[in-house]
C-alpha cells in the first residue's frame, strides 16, 4: 500500500472516532478502572438512551428535517407510564406497547403536518414540544404521579447475565438501523430525499412518505429511549430535558449535515458515545458542572466547522 492510499483511507475514517478514542484515553488516564469490561459496559448502558435517540434523529436529519420534540416526547412517555402503571407489574406489557404506539403516533403527526401542511419541521416539532409538555402535565395535574413498576424499569437498569439489557437493546436497534439506512431501498431514498428533494421526486421517490417514515422512526426510538431512561433514572418531570438538542448534537458530531443528505449510523453512535464520554471526562477532571455545557458547545461548533472545511477542501 502506498502512502497516498493510506492517506486516502485515513481521510475516510469519520473524525468522530478519533475524538472518541482521545476522550476515552483521557478517561482511562484519570481512572484506570474505566477500562474494566463491567465499567465499560456500564458506560455503554449509560449512553444507550442518547444513542438510541440519536439513531432516530439521524433518519430525520438525513431526510432534510429536524425533530425538536423528542425531549418532550420522552418526558411524556415516562410520566404516562407511571400514571397508567401505578407500579403494578401486571400492567407493564401493555404499557410498553402503548408507549411505543404513542411514539409512532407523534411521529406520524409530526410527519403529516410537515409534509402535507408544509409547515417547516422546526416549527412543527417546536409546536409538538409545547403541546406534549402542556398536555401531559395537564393530565397529571402539574407533577408526575403514580409509579414505575420494577419489571418496567428492568430494561434500563438490569442485566441479562453479564450484559445490561440496555446494551442488548441498543445493539439490536443499531444493527436494524444500519441495514435499514445503509442496505435497503428505503435507506437510499432517505439519502436521496435529503440530498436533493426535487431530483428525488423526479426519479420517483415518494418524498413525503420517506419523510413521514423518518419522523415515525424518530418517535418510536424516542419511546424506546424513554423506557430505557425510566429504568435508568426513574420518574421525573424533566426526564427528557435537554435530550432534543443533545440528540441533534450527537448526530452532527457524527458528521451528519443539517439540511440533509449526509450521515451514517456508525458515526452517529460515535457522536452519542463521544458526547457521553466527554461528560464523564469533565466530571473526572473535577470541572464545575455548568462548564460541561461550554465544552459541549465548543465541541459541536468545532466538529461542524471541521466538517465544512473538509467538504470544501475535498471539492
Amino acid at each position: 500500500m502506498t502512502a497516498a492510499t493510506t492517506a486516502a483511507r485515513l481521510r475516510r475514517i469519520a473524525p468522530i472516532w478519533v475524538v472518541l478514542v482521545l476522550v476515552l484515553v483521557g478517561i482511562v488516564w484519570r481512572d484506570p478502572t474505566f477500562a474494566d469490561p463491567p465499567t465499560l459496559l456500564a458506560f455503554v448502558k449509560r449512553s444507550a438512551p442518547l444513542a438510541v435517540l440519536a439513531l432516530g434523529q439521524l433518519f430525520v436529519v438525513i431526510s432534510g428535517e429536524l425533530d425538536l420534540s423528542v425531549g418532550a416526547l420522552i418526558t411524556a412517555c415516562v410520566v404516562a407510564a407511571a400514571r397508567l402503571g401505578e407500579g403494578d407489574p401486571s400492567r407493564t406489557w401493555w404499557i410498553i406497547l402503548l408507549v411505543l404506539g404513542f411514539g409512532v403516533v407523534v411521529g406520524v403527526v409530526n410527519g403529516l403536518i410537515t409534509t402535507m401542511l408544509r409547515v417547516p419541521s422546526f416549527i412543527t416539532t417546536l409546536g409538538m414540544m409545547l403541546v406534549l409538555g402542556g398536555a401531559v402535565f395537564l393530565w397529571t395535574g402539574g407533577s408526575p404521579t403514580g409509579a414505575l413498576a420494577e419489571n418496567f424499569r428492568q430494561y434500563g437498569r438490569e442485566d441479562i447475565g453479564p450484559v445490561p439489557y440496555a446494551v442488548v437493546i441498543l445493539l439490536a436497534i443499531a444493527v436494524a438501523a444500519y441495514f435499514l439506512l445503509h442496505r435497503s431501498r428505503f435507506g437510499h431514498q432517505v439519502f436521496a430525499t435529503g440530498g436533493g428533494t426535487r431530483a428525488a421526486e423526479l426519479s420517483g421517490v415518494a418524498v413525503r412518505r420517506i419523510r413521514v417514515t423518518s419522523f415515525v422512526l424518530s418517535g418510536l426510538l424516542a419511546a424506546v429511549s424513554a423506557i430505557l431512561l425510566a429504568g435508568f433514572a426513574g420518574l421525573s418531570a424533566n426526564a427528557g430535558q435537554g435530550y432534543d438538542f443533545q440528540s441533534i448534537s450527537a448526530v452532527v458530531l457524527g458528521g451528519a449535515v443539517l439540511g440533509g443528505g449526509r450521515g451514517g449510523i456508525g458515526a452517529a453512535l460515535g457522536g452519542a458515545f463521544a458526547l457521553q464520554a466527554m461528560f464523564t471526562l469533565l466530571n473526572l477532571l473535577g470541572m464545575a458542572a455548568p462548564l460541561r455545557d461550554t465544552v459541549q458547545g465548543l465541541l459541536i461548533v468545532a466538529a461542524v466547522a471541521f466538517a465544512a472545511y473538509r467538504l470544501r477542501s475535498n471539492r
Binding site: 448534537s249 439540511g259 459541536i300
Partner: peptide, 15 residues
C-alpha cells in the same frame, strides 16, 4: 467557518 446557523448559535448558547 461556514457552520450552519442552528449549530453555531446552539453552540454559542451552550458556551
Amino acid at each position: 467557518l461556514r457552520v450552519n446557523p442552528f449549530i453555531a448559535t446552539l453552540g454559542m448558547s451552550l458556551v
